[in-house]
Amino acid sequence: MNIIEKYFKKHSNYGDIHQDKKRQYGLGITGILLFICAWAAGGYAVFSKPEFKHFSGFLPGPTLESLLGLSTSLDFWHAVAASLRRVFIGILVAFSIGFPFGILIGFYKNIRILTYPPIQLLRMVSPLSWMPIALLIFASFEGAIYFLITMATVWPIMINTTLGVSRVNPRWLMMAKNQGARDSQLIWMVIIPASVPYILTSLRLALGVAWIVLVPAEFLGISSGLGYLINDARDTMEYDRLMAIIIAIGIIGFILDSLIQLIRKYLDWIWPN
């Protein structure tokens, strides 16, 4: 297959997708194996020295063994559930604030100009710097974590929604106006559905940020969740468990991201670029 054929195949909605899929999965699995090899090589180079003997838990062998153990431990799944709940509630709150504001900011130019400086200023602040304030405002650690995740994710959601609104095909707006649409109908029946791909991207970014902010937020002093488990493993010096949790965090994040990508693939059929 020459390069032009490849190009057409890549950009066509039809064609033999299954063959490509097999190759992709094969390469993906090879990537994971390579990663484990690199991890093992680096680990042995460092931990073979006698003074680092206690840290041999960080090696792939003990870690993967511990990971298997974790997958059958109820405590671990409780921690996953607690962490996922925090991420979802945090993003839900961020979305219910960021999405309507994003639409309004994108639609009304004056609101856009008005809100540009404060939003740019606030989004540059590391979400974890709100930690002391979060602890002051909220009586419970749980509330503080929701607040931190919301602060971290509201900006990508808002900014991407605004971007989606500004990228709506002007012909659709002209058409709808010509057909007699009011402003509210333009927003509900054209702009919001037209920005669905951007909304999905915003959620994907938000999920990535939330998942990253979550662990340090759970170091705060709360006694559940994956961040807490890491702290706990450090205190009890179970380094294989510690490493296994880190890997588990990566795996769960990867799965969540893949789910959104899956929805995106389906939507690409409807909203071609």
């Binding site: 012909r171 709808a176 010509n178 057909q179 109908q185 029946m189 669905v196």
Partner: peptide
């Protein structure tokens, strides 16, 4: 009613829904 050079159909609506779009608006 305006018609443009490039089709101005809404990609998330089917043929049927696109045709009915204006009437549903009103």
């Amino acid at each position: 009613s305006l018609l443009f050079q490039e089709p101005s159909l809404l990609p998330w609506l089917t043929v049927e829904e696109n045709i009915a779009f204006g009437c549903r608006l009103r």
